[in-house]
Each structure stands twice: as C-alpha cells, then as structure tokens.
C-alpha cells in the first residue's frame, strides 16, 4: 500500500518538466544538468547517511567504483549497454560496501568520517599505481548503447539526459518513501539516540549497514552516469576533495527533503561555472563566500527557504 503525498506528486511533476526541458534547452545546459543530477544522486546517499547521523568523507569511493565499472565494462569486458553498465556498477559498489560495511558500521561521528576518507584514498592510491588503467590520466569511456539501441552523437546526449532525469526522479521517489517508512524513521532515531533504539530491541548496527549499502548504490549510480556523460574517468573521483564536495552540497541543500540535493547540486553547478567564467582567477573565493553566506543565513540549507514559506502560508 503506497500512500501518495504532495511531495511525490511534486517530484513526479518536476521529473516530467525536466525531461520535457531536454527538448529545447541548449546542449551545454543539458550537459550541466546531467552532471548536476548525477552528482545529486550521490548526494542523496550522503544525505541518507546524514539522516542516520553518519557523515562520510569517502563517498567518492563508491562514486569512483561506479564510474570505473562503466569505463572498464566497455573497455575490457565488452559490455556496452548503459543501463546494464550502471547496474553492474551499482552491484560492484554494493558488494564492496557489504564487506567494508562490516567494519564501517562500528564507527560513528568523526571516526566514521575519517575512516571513510582513508578507505577512499586507498582506492585512489591503487588507481594511481595502475598504469593499465591510465594511472592519474584515467581513460576514456566508450559510447554506450541504450537497451541495445545505439544513438548518434547528438541524440546520445539527449538520451543520456533523459536517463539521468528519470533515474534521479525515480531514485528520489524511492528515497522519499524510504525516509517516510518505518526504516527511515528508525534511522533518524539512531541519529538522535542510538542507545534508546537498542533498548527497543533493534540492532542499530545492522540498520546502519543497510543504510550504508543503499548509499553506496546511489553513489555508484551517480558515478556511472557521470562517467557516461563526460566520457572520461580518472582516480580524482576517489580523491577526498570529491567526497568533500558531496558533503558540501548535502549541507547546502539540507537534509529535510529529497528535493533539496537536486536544488543544491544545480545551484552549485551554476555558481561554479559562472564564477569560473567571470572571475577565472578568484572563482574559489566566490564559491567560498556564497557557501559561507548560505550556511550563515540558512543553517538548515536551501530547503529551509521552502519550509519557512510553507509555514508562513499555514
């Protein structure tokens, strides 16, 4: 039994509008949106963990696994179908998470953050050492097919954009339901007070384990889409600054609603690209000030704008 609420209708509508927009926005804008939505999928995983009280500074690990699965699938294993590659990437990430999760779920707070960072940096190191995979230069991703159909250059980008929009929309819907399910509520309870959850006879550790796997799958999906869109992968995907950016976008949007990461990721992409264009020498500083401004004035993220408006109406 699925209860359909206003948010779900809104998400579905937003997905359709974004999909329709693909028809007439210029290619460069569609490309920025593709990358931003793919990144937002990873951020959804980070938010998922945040709602359970965990902050990962190493989500780049699974992002990178997803990306490399897509790249290597095409390069070495002759898999060229995009949806299949994405599934392979997600499965690979979940498999890795299933092993690492056994260790990671023992940690909380800053220790979880630091250990996740260390693990992701180890993958970075391994990739830098792998000259067959192009070391730091990485390698180019072969153009993929979609359910067996191949597309010309221009429609390829449009199809990829649509795929990203629907995956992002679908992912958001699922996460919205998860957040409002019993499991989602218990994750929040763990964040608030883990011991009381234990007293209720539940095992926070295994609940967090499930959370960790789900977040990994989302990260790999985002990584795979990013690899398909840019056509190139390199170990930078696992570097700690990449993971830091995900956390950043997560906090920028806020954790209150599944739509927040999308808004934040898109805003982040635009601020960055225009900052680079108008002040090529000081774009980092502009980015810093914008982010600082948002944190200082909107500590609960951009989504608090929407919330306060709703409250004002009510």
């Amino acid at each position: 039994m699925i209860h359909i609420d206003r948010s779900m209708v809104g998400l579905a509508a937003a997905t359709l509008i974004l999909a329709a927009m693909g028809g007439f926005v210029p290619d460069w804008l569609a490309f920025i949106l593709t990358l931003a939505l793919a990144k937002a999928l990873v951020v959804q995983g980070v938010v998922l963990q945040m709602r359970a009280g965990l902050v990962s500074f190493g989500q780049g690990l699974f992002f990178c696994v997803g990306g490399y699965a897509v790249g290597m699938g095409g390069q070495f294993f002759g898999i060229h179908d995009a949806p299949l590659l994405l599934v392979v990437g997600a499965l690979a990430a979940v498999a890795l998470a299933a092993v690492l999760g056994l260790l990671m779920t023992r940690y909380r707070d800053i220790f979880f953050a630091m250990l996740s960072l260390a693990l992701s940096m180890i993958l970075f190191g391994v990739l830098v050492k792998s000259s067959d995979l192009g070391s730091t230069d990485g390698f180019n991703v072969h153009p993929a097919t979609f359910f067996g159909h191949s597309f010309s250059n221009e429609s390829y980008k449009s199809v990829l954009y649509l795929l990203t929009v629907f995956l992002a929309g679908g992912g958001a819907l699922i996460l919205h339901m998860v957040h409002h399910s019993g499991l989602g509520r218990i994750w929040e309870a763990i964040r608030e007070n883990e011991i009381r959850v234990e007293y209720l006879g539940l095992s926070p550790r295994w609940l967090l384990y499930a959370n960790y796997l789900l977040a990994a799958a989302f990260a790999a999906l985002g990584g795979g889409l990013t690899a398909l869109a840019t056509g190139h992968i390199d170990p930078e995907m696992a570097f700690w600054t990449t993971s830091g950016e995900f956390v950043f976008i997560a906090l920028l949007g806020g954790t209150a609603h599944v739509a927040a990461p999308f808004i934040a990721a898109i805003l982040f992409a635009f601020v960055r690209t225009y900052a680079i264009e108008f002040t090529p020498h000081t774009w980092q500083m502009i980015l810093g000030f914008v982010l600082l401004g948002i944190i200082v004035f909107l500590p609960k993220g951009l989504w608090s704008l929407v919330q306060s408006k709703r409250r004002a109406k009510a």
């Binding site: 950043f248 774009w283 980092q284 810093g288 000030f289 982010l291 600082l292």
Partner: peptide, 9 residues
C-alpha cells in the same frame, strides 16, 4: 571548508 576556499584565493 568555505574559509579554506576563500583563503586559498
């Protein structure tokens, strides 16, 4: 982190 970006430039 925002400070880091600002100070870097």
């Amino acid at each position: 982190y925002a400070l880091l970006l600002i100070l870097e430039d």
